[in-house]
């Protein structure tokens, strides 16, 4: 049946790992928006939640780096990061290998994806799940776009991946939701961690909420790197979520810079009717 949800959110490790150092007023407003997104998804009773992240070398390395990958296992462990670093305890998450396989087969009709029968969640998935708290009956399907190690798939291929996920989800009988996670502008894990191009972020999210394909795909990687940092490459996940929404317009529930979290913290969705 048709995809039931398409949304986007931030995933920086500081969101949980350095929570005590953020302005509490802004932090709590952000957390509340994050939890509201979880409630909204749970109310839709999805059978599965695709979490489309920009993985950070938890599973893939430069010896064999897929542009696009989808998990295909009955369970997943995470986070891979130490609890002392991320402040999220390790646990096992429910997957559904058979459902993943059907989703992958349909996605492959238009986009080549790697599949992974092992997948350790890193902060890109574990931080959002910490707030979204899907029902235990809901299977997780991790997915990844390489945003770390250039060469990167062009933005229009990220869009095509989102479209392919939508077609695949629509063709299956299960109720499937999608949340894409990433940063907008940011310079994470550099001496400039905390730097945020707020105006750039607001313009990107304006384009995202308008689901303006041409405007979203008009950035070059050189421009992104110059204006939004290497972390800005992660807009690929947001672009895929917009494509999966199939023309729906977006609602930005929360958007504010929190430097110790290294990003403009964002929670947004595209109502699918």
């Amino acid at each position: 049946m048709p995809l039931v949800y398409s949304g986007v959110c931030s995933h920086g490790p500081g969101i949980t790992g350095r929570a005590d150092r953020a302005d509490p007023v802004v932090r709590e407003a952000f957390y509340a928006a994050f939890r509201d997104m979880g409630a909204e998804i749970r109310a839709l009773r999805p059978d599965a939640l695709i979490v489309l992240a920009a993985e950070h070398f938890a599973n893939f390395f430069m010896n064999n780096m897929p542009s696009f990958a989808i998990g295909m296992a009955d369970s997943y462990d995470g986070p891979i990061e130490d609890e002392a670093f991320l402040k999220i305890p390790k646990r096992r998450w429910k997957g559904d290998a058979a459902l993943s396989r059907r989703l992958i087969e349909r996605t492959m009709e238009t986009v080549d994806v790697a599949y992974a029968e092992e997948w350790q969640f890193d902060h890109g998935i574990a931080v959002p799940l910490h707030f979204l708290r899907p029902d235990e009956s809901c299977a997780l399907i991790p997915a990844n776009i390489n945003c770390q190690g250039p060469p990167l798939a062009p933005l229009h291929r990220a869009w095509a991946f989102g479209e392919a996920l939508r077609r695949a989800a629509d063709a299956l009988p299960q109720r499937i939701a999608l949340v894409a996670t990433g940063g907008i502008s940011h310079w994470p894990a550099t001496p400039d961690s905390g730097k945020i191009a707020e105006a750039w972020d607001r313009e990107f999210m304006r384009r995202w909420a308008a689901n303006d394909r041409a405007a979203l795909l008009s950035y070059s990687d050189a421009e992104i790197y110059r204006d939004a940092g290497q972390g800005g490459f992660e807009i690929r996940t947001f672009i895929a979520a917009a494509a999966a929404a199939k023309g729906a317009r977006g609602h930005v529930a929360f958007m504010a810079p929190i430097p110790i979290f290294a990003v403009t913290c964002t929670v947004a969705s595209m109502p699918l009717g």
Partner: peptide, 19 residues
Amino acid sequence: GVYAATGYEGIAAHDARLA
């Protein structure tokens, strides 16, 4: 690589400006 420094006011100064 792509993790070069580009210049930043720092988290404390940034927080103060936002506040």
